[in-house]
């Protein structure tokens, strides 16, 4: 297991790329890791391709070089095709898609987060479902990110807002189970 992790989160403006980047960063910080992120603001946020970089550990620069990312969360299938070049060989890509995208050389897992979010009555929460899915996929590769520490970050962030907290945790859990179900 490596203590340095470089993760790409990719989606479209409005999908909440920033939100899950911050949750992941918070989880790493809770484990006393140094964290850097870089994000998209301004015009591209209006529905364009949006990318966040998350670097955990000993780094100076905020961006990730192509072929260096340990993980990639793609909130749309097109986001995966856009940004899979960031993944290192055998890097882990998780994709919100009912179908499995072709990506030789990487370890790619897909799940239909959209349907789960819709079922939960929260169609805009694909991001949180995919975060749970990703956490499950990374479980055996790093202990920086875990469901427990994510839950703590979420509880802290929405303290006093029980209903919101439970809603987010349920979505996160549903994504985690979606990964497990696909591989059991």
């Amino acid at each position: 297991m490596s203590n340095n992790q470089q993760i790409i989160i990719s989606g479209l403006g409005g999908q909440g790329v920033l939100f899950i980047t911050k949750l992941l960063a918070g989880a790493a910080m809770a484990g006393n890791y140094r964290v850097m992120t870089s994000e998209t603001h301004g015009m591209a946020q209006r529905g364009g391709n949006v990318i966040s970089y998350l670097k955990i550990g000993d780094f100076s620069g905020p961006l990730i070089r192509p072929g260096k990312a340990d993980g990639l969360i793609a909130l749309k299938e097109e986001s995966f095709h856009h940004h899979s070049y960031f993944l290192k060989p055998r890097g882990v890509g998780v994709v919100n898609s009912p179908a499995m995208p072709e990506a030789p050389g990487f370890q790619v897992y897909s799940g239909d987060a959209e349907s789960l979010a819709l079922e939960a009555g929260s169609p805009q929460s694909v991001n949180v479902v995919m975060l749970g899915f990703f956490t499950a996929a990374m479980e055996k590769r790093t202990d920086i990110i875990s469901m427990d520490c994510l839950a703590e970050v979420i509880q802290e962030k929405f303290r006093g807002k029980e209903k919101i907290t439970t809603g987010i945790l349920d979505l996160l859990e549903s994504g985690y189970r979606l990964y497990k179900k696909g591989r059991s």
């Binding site: 960063a25 850097m36 992120t37 870089s38």
Partner: peptide, 9 residues
């Protein structure tokens, strides 16, 4: 931009 819109602990 990469300083303004980066986050660091």
């Amino acid at each position: 931009t990469r300083v303004c819109h980066s986050r660091q602990s």
